[in-house]
């Protein structure tokens, strides 16, 4: 079997720790029981010609497995899930529904939660961000309400735990600095249920470990 290598960062600022998108890839690999090695980029290395050649947008993660190099965390998680019936059920209808929820996590929920998170982090000091916040908050809440209704009283998005839950949980983490999820009992319980999985804990620890090791010395 080809060795799997996942690219992440040596260090990111505290607000991004536990949120970088290699987390969802590490988690999927842990759930699938696939060992991997990590390649860590130092400050600025994501913009090197070498990295841009395999990730044109200068981001992480990148996934390498033999001759195959993939970027886009959603595509990587789908690729891993296709090797693991635990992450993606083989029955065509269930499989298609899990993939629907994977796209919903990344395209109907994530953009709105990230937009809100960006206002609170990158743009916190900008006047326009203060003015934008109420409408961005309303949009994020509306999508969370849709998600909670879509989840209903089921423990997971589609049948047993799947790749859709890996993506949705990591998406919900983008607003962990707010009380938006904890204010919604259905979603709070869902996130807690998914994050209680040993594979998630191992993935999170694996992402955080280098951040401690490579933390910049305060000036």
């Amino acid at each position: 079997m080809a060795n799997i290598r996942v690219t992440g960062f040596k260090w990111v600022p505290p607000f991004a720790q536990g949120l970088v998108r290699d987390l969802r890839v590490r988690w999927a690999l842990e759930e699938a029981g696939l060992p991997y090695e990590e390649k860590l980029l130092g400050h600025g290395e994501q913009n090197s010609a070498e990295h841009r050649a395999i990730q044109p947008f200068g981001q992480v993660p990148v996934f390498e497995e033999g001759d195959l190099t993939l970027f886009e965390s959603g595509a990587i998680v789908l690729h891993i899930a296709e090797k693991s019936p635990l992450l993606l059920p083989p029955e065509p209808g269930a499989r298609a529904r899990v993939i629907t929820w994977m796209f919903a996590a990344l395209n109907s929920v994530e953009p709105h939660l990230l937009a809100l998170a960006a206002l609170d982090s990158f743009f916190a000091k900008e006047e326009w961000a203060r003015l934008r916040k109420p409408s961005a908050l309303a949009m994020a809440q509306s999508r969370l309400t849709g998600l909670a209704a879509g989840l209903g009283d089921r423990p997971y998005l589609e049948g047993p735990f799947s790749a859709a839950d890996v993506l949705m949980t990591t998406v919900l983490r983008f607003i962990k600095h707010t009380t938006l999820v904890t204010e919604m009992p259905t979603l709070a319980a869902y996130q807690a249920r998914c994050e209680a999985r040993p594979a998630f804990k191992r993935a999170l620890e694996a992402q955080l470990a280098p951040f401690a090791k490579y933390a910049p010395v305060a000036a």
Partner: peptide, 10 residues
């Protein structure tokens, strides 16, 4: 498939 995700997410 990765480019589908790129279109939507990047």
């Amino acid at each position: 498939k990765a480019w589908i995700f790129s279109a939507l997410n990047s």
